[in-house]
Simulated scan of single mutants.
Amino acid sequence: MYFWNIDALKRDFLQGRFSQTQAFYYLVVMLVLFTLPIAIVGENTSVWDKALFWVELAFVVLGTTFIYKSNGGRDGREFLERYVSLSWVVFIRLLPLIILFGIIVSISRDIFIGDADYSFTVYDFAAVILIDFIYYWRLSHHMADLSQASVSGVQLSGEN
C-alpha cells in the first residue's frame, strides 16, 4: 500500500500490477478512516454511542471482508467498481426501511423514555445494527451473484 508515493501507485495501475487484493486493502483502510469520526464523542454520550462505534468498526472491516470473499477474493474481478456501484443501489433500496426504522425508534423513544433530551438509546443502537446487518448481507448476496455469473458465464435472472 502506498501512503504518499502517488507516482508509484500510478505506475502500478499502468503496468497492470494493481490487484483486487490491493483494492480491497485501500477500501478497508478508507472505510475505517470514514468510521473513526463516530468515535469522537462529547460529554453527553451514552454507552450506546460508544458501543455503536465498535460495532460499526467491526461491520466495516468484517462486512467488507465478507463482500470481498463473495466477489471471489484475490481471483475476483472489478471489486471496487462492483462494491461502490452495488453499495449505492443497495443503500437506495434500504432507504425506505431506514426511514421506517427511524419513525419506529422515534415513537418508541417518546413512549418509553419521554421528552428527555435526545441521547442515543438501545432502540437506536438496535435499529442501526439491524440495518447494517441487512445492508452487508444484501450487498454480499448481490456481489456473489455477480461473481458467479462472471465465472460461469450464466445470465443473471431478473430477480431482486
Rank of each mutant, 00 (worst) to 15 (best):
R82S: 15
I98H: 10
I113Y: 05
L57S: 03
L100P: 01
G114K: 02
Y68G: 00
L97I: 14
R93G: 04
I113C: 10
Y118E: 04
G114Y: 04
R74K: 13
T64M: 06
D115T: 13
R74S: 06
I111T: 13
G73T: 04
L97M: 09
I98K: 05
S106N: 15
G76W: 07
S108P: 05
G102C: 15
N71G: 04
S85C: 13
I113T: 03
R109D: 08
K69H: 08
S70R: 12
S70G: 11
D115R: 13
S85Y: 07
V60I: 15
F91I: 03
G72P: 01
Y118M: 04
F79A: 04
F112K: 13
R93Y: 05
F59H: 10
E81L: 15
F112I: 02
Y118T: 07
G114E: 06
S106V: 08
V61L: 04
L94M: 09
V55M: 11
G102T: 12
E81F: 14
V84S: 11
S108F: 13
L80S: 08
D124G: 06
S85N: 12
L86V: 13
E78C: 15
Y118C: 07
R109G: 05
K69T: 05
R77P: 07
D75V: 01
S70I: 07
I99Y: 12
S87I: 06
V60Q: 11
S85T: 15
Y118N: 12
L97A: 09
S85E: 14
R77L: 14
I113M: 08
I92L: 13
S87W: 03
G72W: 00
F59G: 06
A58E: 06
L86E: 07
R77Q: 15
I104H: 09
V55N: 05
Y123Q: 12
F59K: 02
S106F: 10
S70A: 15
D124F: 07
S87Q: 12
L62D: 06
G76P: 08
P96D: 01
V105P: 07
V84K: 10
L95P: 00
F91H: 03
N71R: 02
T121M: 10
V105N: 01
V105K: 11
E56H: 11
L94G: 04
E81M: 14
A126L: 10
S85I: 13
D75N: 10
W88T: 14
D75E: 09
R77W: 08
E78Y: 15
L62T: 12
V84P: 10
A116G: 07
S106K: 14
S108W: 12
T64E: 02
G73Q: 00
R93K: 14
L62C: 08
Y123C: 09
